[in-house]
Design a protein around this nucleic acid. Structure first.
Length: 168
DNA sequence: ACCCCGATCGTA
DNA sequence: ACGATCGGGGTT
C-alpha cells in the first residue's frame, strides 16, 4: 500500500481535511482509519494557533506540507495535526478521531485520546510524514460521505464549518 | 517574571 | 457542569 506523497498535502487545507477521511494513519505498530478531521488556516482564522504569525511553536505550520504538528494542551494531552498548503502558508488538519482495526473495542474519538493510545508526543513534532520510516499516512480509499459541522472546543471561529466526521 | 487560558477528557 | 494540570505566548 502506497503512502500519501507531498502533493496530496500541498493543496487547500479544506480539501485535504475532507480527503483524509478514510486514509490510514500509521505510527510505529499502530494503524488507524481517519474518521474525523478539522481544518485550521492561519489567515483569517482566529482559532488557528498561527493566526497571530510566527512563534516558536507555530513555525512548523508555515513550513512545507506533509509535516506533523504536535502540540501539548491542557497540561496533559497531545494533539496531532498534519501541515498542508505551500511553504509560507500556515495551515494544518487536526486529526480528531480514528478507527482502530487491530482492536475494534478501542474507541479513539478525540485528538487527545488517539495521541495517548498511539503514544504520539512532542518528540514526534515536525516529522516529515512523506519520508519517515514509522510515521506516515497510507492511501486507503476516502469516505464519500461525511457530516460537516463547526469545530469543537474553540471560542473563536465557530462560524466556520471546518469539521468533517464520517457517519459510522 | 508573571499570569491567563487553552484545537481535552473523564467524572458528576 | 467542572476540575485536573502545565506550557505557550502576550503583557509588565
Amino acid at each position: 500500500m502506497k503512502r500519501l506523497q507531498r502533493d496530496f498535502f500541498n493543496r487547500p487545507v479544506l480539501t485535504v481535511a475532507q480527503e483524509l477521511l478514510g486514509k490510514t494513519l500509521a505510527y510505529k505498530e499502530h494503524q488507524g482509519i481517519i474518521t474525523e478531521t478539522e481544518a485550521y488556516h492561519g489567515h483569517d482564522d482566529p482559532a488557528c494557533h498561527a493566526s497571530r504569525g510566527h512563534t516558536p511553536r507555530t513555525d512548523v505550520m508555515f513550513g512545507p506540507p506533509g509535516f506533523s504538528y504536535v502540540y501539548f494542551i491542557y497540561g496533559m494531552y497531545h494533539c496531532l495535526n498534519i501541515v498542508t498548503e505551500a511553504e509560507g502558508t500556515a495551515a494544518a488538519v487536526l486529526i480528531r478521531g480514528v478507527q482502530y482495526p487491530q482492536d475494534p473495542k478501542v474507541v479513539l474519538n478525540g485528538p487527545g485520546k488517539l495521541c495517548r493510545y498511539f503514544g504520539i508526543t512532542l518528540t514526534d513534532n515536525r516529522t516529515d510524514l512523506v519520508v519517515s520510516k514509522n510515521f506516515y499516512v497510507l492511501d486507503t480509499p476516502s469516505y464519500p460521505s461525511y457530516d460537516i459541522t463547526p469545530r469543537i472546543g474553540i471560542n473563536q471561529g465557530q462560524d466556520k464549518l471546518w469539521r468533517f466526521v464520517v457517519r459510522l
